[in-house]
Design a protein around this nucleic acid. Structure first.
Length: 222
DNA sequence: CCCTGATTCGC
DNA sequence: GCGAATCAGG
């Protein structure tokens, strides 16, 4: 079997629809799942979560700010916060904000702290002693709000077609979640602007810097 | 083991 | 360009 236009079209459609390579291979028939994946890559579509692709852990030692680290609300990788100069979804998987467990306890030796009790029975705090760091509440809103007027005039999932930009704005499940909806950059699932975010030049692998040797704080490669 | 997608490399 | 072989995480 060869890759006719129809078959390529079908492949694209199913790939973007989230079908797995195996499913696509089945439905197309006459090709292996490897063939499908290979073709998909050659076609340039490959923005999909891979089990094997680690999601770029920003494991900066972060030795700075000892305790004051703000839990960073919820900013999905694909979202475009107004003030942020660079959302850069790059080629990362949308649904992977990598929830970091709170673990507030600033490692302090279990050294018994001596307190004195004041006249009224109040416990006196040592000057430097902070009250228990409030556990950051889970920021994610997992359950969708009811459908609402916010969405009016917006491009919803149901409005998606081959001609509009599929760049998501906001968080899935939230009432105002929608898609860009601009006219697409022909041949791409996104408009010109979002193509600029989605597709960024990659250097040949062999020229790329392997991450391991970075001691810390290395330049964020993106 | 099964699944997944990514990558490599001879054709 | 193609896809089997291989890799590697879930």
């Amino acid at each position: 079997m060869s890759w006719t236009d129809e078959r390529i079209e079908a492949l694209k459609a199913m790939w973007e629809a989230g079908k797995t390579a195996s499913q696509i291979a089945d439905e197309l028939g006459g090709v292996s799942r490897n063939a499908v994946i290979g073709k998909a890559h050659r076609l340039g579509l490959q923005a999909r979560p891979s089990p094997v692709k680690p999601n770029e852990v920003a494991a900066e030692p972060a030795a700075a700010e000892p305790v004051a680290a703000a839990p960073e609300p919820d900013v999905a990788p694909w979202e475009e916060p107004e003030p942020d100069p660079e959302p850069e979804p790059v080629r990362a998987a949308p649904p992977a904000p990598a929830a970091v467990p709170p673990t507030p306890e600033p490692k302090r030796d279990a050294e018994p702290v001596l307190r004195s009790v004041g006249p009224g029975g109040f416990v006196r705090q040592a000057p430097g002693e902070q009250q228990p760091p409030i556990a950051p509440a889970p920021p994610r809103r997992l359950v969708p709000a009811k459908p609402s007027p916010e969405i009016a005039g917006k491009t919803t999932l149901l409005d998606l077609n081959d001609r509009v930009c599929k760049w998501p704005l906001g968080h899935p499940g939230e009432p105002d979640f929608h898609f860009c909806g601009e006219k697409v950059n022909p041949g791409f699932p996104y408009c010109v602007e979002h193509c600029g975010h989605a597709y960024q030049a990659q250097m040949p692998r062999r020229d790329r810097r392997p991450p391991p040797p970075l001691p810390f704080g290395g330049p964020r490669v993106r």
